[in-house]
Each structure stands twice: as structure tokens, then as C-alpha cells.
């Protein structure tokens, strides 16, 4: 850290080894006048799990939700920079955020099934996209991929809300993958789950990365070491009077946890602050 007091710290860009599906370059993200995140370059690699870690308020969720324009639902949100997805900037004027979200799906912190049957939950996206093929087959496939089929195959007509928390979250994952999106964003997918359900979802993620590209925010560093191939560490800068998040370091998970380049990363992973 030999930056002068005036120059803001900017992380060294991470050189991805494989195909980059989403190349996210954040210059600034604002909520109204509030600068939430600055200067963060986060490439998401194909068929890998990219983990976002960092203390509360560091902007990791904001960055994740910027990847499929979920933040557009917040009226005061403003994104400066670009997010290249297969060569197109998803923040380009002519891009329809609704279409972006059909390619880049999302799983949320709280399991949020719709109040309909398990089957209808999974079929929701297929019907939305006027899927012409065999809906039943795709629903079964999605539920099998989400490791939920054996538990629910006899009660597909029951309410999605009747399932346990862990099952609900796997149902949400099944719902998200039924339309076979390209990328799956997960915003702390296990934080509302117990350890057993967490383990199941983690195992599921490792299977899913064979077919999908995953990006995940987690508060749990052990979880990052267990599932993430690449880890991005964000921190929050309160020295300027605001609370602006920024990328500190990004690299292969093992390197981040065993041999971090930055002092701040070292302090965070050793639990000196959170």
C-alpha cells in the first residue's frame, strides 16, 4: 500500500485464465447522491463460481445485482461503467433489462417461492418465455438438477411455501435454472438456511457450475473457500466521510485465502475485522 493519501486505492485488475462471460467494469454506482461503489473490475469466468466477500456495506451485493440490472428497480440507482456480456454492454441504451434477466438469472437471500404449486413455480419461467417443448420434462429436469426431485416428486401440486427453508431455496434454484439461463447470480443464497441445507445448496452449486456460470455473494468465508473458484474481496472506505465500497483484490480463491497480496485482505480473512 504505497498509495498517497490523495490517490484512491484501485485494485490490480484480475487476469482471468478462462473465458470471461460477464466483464464488469464499475466506475461508479450511485444511489441518489450516495456513492455506493467505485472503481471495481470484476470479470466472471465461464463455468466457474465467483465468490464476492467483504464486510457489510462494501457493495458486494450492489455489484452482483448490477450484473443483471436488478438494481434498475431502485429508482435512484445510477450505474457508471460497463458490463460486457457476450460483447454487448447490458447498460447500453437499446438493451431491455427484462431480456437481460432472462439470460442472467438470480437466486435471492431469502427463499422466495411464489404462492403457487411446486410444479407451477418451476414452470413459471418456461410459461413466461412461451416455452414450446415438454414443460413437464423440463420441470422434472430442473428439480433433479436442484437435487429436490426425490423429495417433492409425489407432491408437485402442493404449495411451494409448504416446503422447508432449505427445500424452498432449492426450489428457487430449480425455478431459476428451468429456463436454462446462462449465468446464475446468487445473493447470499445460504444465509437464511441451517447448516445441513447450506451444505446441500453448496453441493448443488458445485454440480451446477458444470453447466452454468455462477456468481455468489457470501458473508461466510468458509463457504467461499468451499465453493468459489475465484474470489473477489471488497471493502468499504469510510475515510472520505462516505461509505463507498470498492474491490480490494480478486484472484483464485486459494491465493486470496493463503497468500493475499493486500494487507487489508489478510486482515479480513484472518478475522481482524468484519
Amino acid at each position: 500500500m504505497n498509495a498517497t493519501a490523495e490517490a484512491l486505492f484501485v485494485a490490480e485488475p484480475f487476469q482471468a485464465s478462462g473465458d470471461v462471460v460477464i466483464d464488469c467494469k464499475v466506475d461508479k454506482i450511485f444511489y441518489g447522491d450516495f456513492l455506493a461503489v467505485r472503481d471495481s473490475i470484476v470479470p466472471i469466468e465461464k463455468h466457474k463460481i465467483t465468490g464476492f466477500i467483504g464486510p457489510s456495506g462494501c457493495g458486494k451485493s450492489t455489484v452482483l445485482r448490477s450484473l443483471n440490472r436488478m438494481n434498475d428497480l431502485i429508482q435512484v440507482f445510477r450505474f457508471e461503467g460497463n458490463v460486457m456480456y457476450h460483447g454487448q454492454d447490458i447498460y447500453a441504451k437499446k438493451v431491455d433489462p427484462v431480456v437481460v434477466r432472462r439470460y442472467i438469472g438470480m437466486v435471492f437471500q431469502q427463499p422466495n417461492p411464489f404462492s403457487m404449486s411446486i410444479y407451477d413455480n418451476v414452470a413459471f419461467g418456461l410459461r413466461l418465455n412461451r416455452f414450446k417443448g415438454d414443460v413437464e420434462e423440463r420441470v422434472e429436469k430442473a428439480l433433479r438438477s436442484a437435487a429436490l426431485w426425490n423429495e417433492v416428486k409425489d407432491k408437485l401440486k402442493n404449495s411451494g411455501l409448504s416446503l422447508s427453508g432449505g427445500q424452498q431455496q432449492r426450489l428457487c434454484i430449480a425455478r431459476a435454472i428451468a429456463t436454462e439461463p446462462d449465468v446464475l447470480l446468487m445473493d447470499e443464497p445460504c444465509s437464511a438456511l441451517d447448516p445441513i441445507a447450506t451444505r446441500q445448496v453448496e453441493e448443488l452449486m458445485l454440480e451446477l457450475k458444470e453447466h452454468y456460470t455462477l456468481a455468489m455473494v457470501t458473508h461466510n468465508m468458509q463457504q467461499a473457500t468451499r465453493v468459489a473458484d475465484t474470489t473477489a474481496f471488497f471493502s468499504v472506505d469510510i475515510s472520505q466521510g462516505g461509505r463507498t465500497g470498492y474491490l480490494v483484490e480478486m484472484g483464485p480463491t486459494r491465493q486470496i485465502f493463503e497468500d493475499p497480496r493486500e494487507q487489508l485482505t489478510k486482515e479480513y480473512i484472518s478475522g481482524e475485522f468484519s
Binding site: 443483471n68 422466495n112 404462492s115 413466461l128 418465455n129 425455478r175
Partner: peptide, 23 residues
């Protein structure tokens, strides 16, 4: 969060209202 889920699946606002909020 239910509405967020629908938006996250790529629903337009009309679809969110017709397919999730009203039912």
C-alpha cells in the same frame, strides 16, 4: 421478495402484476 423473484426471472412490470401480485 416475491415481486423481486418475478423481476429476476425476467418479468415485465405488467407480468409481475398479472402473474404474481394479482393471483
Amino acid at each position: 421478495r416475491m415481486k423481486d423473484a418475478a423481476y429476476g426471472m425476467g418479468c415485465t412490470r405488467t407480468q409481475v402484476i398479472l402473474k404474481v401480485v394479482l393471483p
